[in-house]
């Protein structure tokens, strides 16, 4: 069950990040371990992503826990989000 949820989170997050939020070439979405900072993550997009996670995925992400390490990649984000469920 937990694994299924993580997979779903990953799919939703990838769709949002690379399909909507980031200036990403749709034909070449970055790998899950790739640095989001190298693919256009900036302050505005970070704020938008936090709102997306809180409103769509219904997971509250405490401001004090938002660190470079946690939003480094899709992998680190999924791990963090799942730990907050």
């Amino acid at each position: 069950m937990r694994e299924q949820m993580a997979t779903r989170t990953r799919e939703q997050l990838r769709d949002y990040l690379f399909g909507t939020l980031m200036p990403t070439d749709r034909g070449a979405w970055p790998a899950d371990e790739a640095s989001l900072f190298d693919h256009g993550m900036d302050s505005l997009r970070l704020m938008q992503m936090l709102v997306y996670v809180e409103e769509t995925l219904k997971v509250r992400l405490p401001d004090e826990e938002v660190t470079p390490e946690r939003i480094e990649s899709v992998n680190s984000l999924v791990e963090w989000i799942d730990s907050r469920r």
Binding site: L46, E64, V66, P68
Partner: peptide, 12 residues
Amino acid sequence: ESIKMFPYQMAK
């Protein structure tokens, strides 16, 4: 640079 995107880290 590593904290400039992170409001809580900057506030801290």
